[in-house]
């Protein structure tokens, strides 16, 4: 089973995920953001709220949101 880092890397097609953000990372556009959320939900068996989906801004804060699930 893929971990969070592997899912992010696969969906956004980036190798180094630690320092990526929606603002700085070109690949993390609005479309890929939705694909990323759906892939994380499917692969990790968790569910996000709409507010959480909007709150995700970078990998660090994504990791924090996921760790609380």
């Amino acid at each position: 089973m893929e971990n969070l880092k592997e899912i992010v890397s696969r969906v956004l097609e980036v190798k180094d995920v630690e320092n990526i953000s929606r603002e700085k990372t070109e690949e993390w556009d609005s479309f890929n953001h939705l694909m990323l959320v759906s892939e994380i939900e499917k692969n990790l068996g968790i569910k996000f709220t709409i507010e959480e989906v909007e709150k995700i801004k970078n990998y660090e804060n994504l990791k924090n949101i996921v760790s609380k699930k």
Partner: peptide, 9 residues
């Protein structure tokens, strides 16, 4: 075969 509430997929 699947629904994702947060993204309405």
């Amino acid at each position: 075969f699947n629904k994702i509430e947060s993204t309405k997929f």
